[in-house]
Design a protein around this nucleic acid. Sequence first.
DNA 1: CCGTGTGAATAAATTCACAGCA
DNA 2: TGCTGTGAATTTATTCACACGG
Lengths: 223, 223
Amino acid sequence: MSAVEPLDTAAATQHVPDATLRRLSLYLHSLNEWSAAGVLTVSSARLAGAAGTTPATLRKDLNLLGSHGRPGIGYEITTLVPVLERTLGLTTAWRVGIIGAGHLGQALAGYAGFTRRGFPVVAVLDAAPALIGTDVAGLVVQDVADLEEVVARDELTMAVLTVPGAAAQPLVDRLAAAGVRSILSFAPVAVTVPDGVDVRRVDLASELQVLAHHAGAASGPPG
Amino acid sequence: MSAVEPLDTAAATQHVPDATLRRLSLYLHSLNEWSAAGVLTVSSARLAGAAGTTPATLRKDLNLLGSHGRPGIGYEITTLVPVLERTLGLTTAWRVGIIGAGHLGQALAGYAGFTRRGFPVVAVLDAAPALIGTDVAGLVVQDVADLEEVVARDELTMAVLTVPGAAAQPLVDRLAAAGVRSILSFAPVAVTVPDGVDVRRVDLASELQVLAHHAGAASGPPG
DNA sequence: CCGTGTGAATAAATTCACAGCA
DNA sequence: TGCTGTGAATTTATTCACACGG
């Protein structure tokens, strides 16, 4: 039997599907903006509109975290925000390392969106001698040969992989061995990982190709 | 009866779900690599492994495009590649404009993965006077005030939006009015678009937050 | 009235399992 | 024997519809 039952302070956190988690992140973003603007409560329709989903889906999503809404009123922002933050793991102080200081890696190192939403980038690594030692977004690029040292010294808890596909698997192996359990990979290849390590893959070109298909096939032909 | 039946040269292209399209893009990427290495045929198990899915899912995916595999043999790469390219809209010469030359925009402008997979970046725009006129990835940053002109002159058919959330909706409106029908947005807000215009959203921070949740809650219990 | 919570219905995606061809 | 094509079963996700609280 599974031994892990992290009883929560208020409600037992059930299993939350990934599709819901991605939406929760958007809900939280909107709530933070409205909170700063002085808004107190928000309805499912309003929040769903901002996140690009439907009220029914939103209510289902939030209900997985417990009943925090009030009929006739909506959701109180100051109540909801901490619940979302807890669910999204924002009570941990994450420390992100970027592996691969090419174009994409350099950009993500300087991308304010990561830090602003709880994931500060504290290290950048690469294998190219020409890059090692240079400054990227205020960080000195370190040698990927020293990956294990860097993980330990900079206390990395997350890695963003922006390397060519062929380099991905060995690096994932080393990251996993070094204790990094959360990896976001931009390489368009599958990687295998030991139990307890979680890899998510984002492929930007694939997203463009979905758009290309929609535009090319039966989509919205004006005439 | 459905009125839309775009008869194709070989097989009628049915409706292909987005989840499948994203995988098709990965299949194509692997096939191109193997093709360059001289491989002639590939089995569903092999290709599925490279793309991080299962053989059954892969066969279902490819079958939406027609029966191109041979029992006992597998799929012939030279047969499959053109089918995937056609389905993914790679017969059109796409021209991508990056709207927003911040960290993320600059990186994507120089990201080789876009060009390599059929989506060359031909224009970069921004609103900041300090950026306009500067060089980004070999392109001169143009004034977003001239968006409509740039779309026409550079014949943009796709836009990548890397601007703050608050700026997204007005820019989407202008892009749509200027004739751009495919938009990839990195802004963490929903936007509304007229019919015939397609927006896909990628939120990188959300992906990290999914990882954070998995790591924080019940995630990889081996038992 | 609004607007949430939620069971039921629906739709979508994945996996199974196996017949049949090379 | 190996491997595809595919109907059926299953799992997952979304939408509907409405009882009930403020």
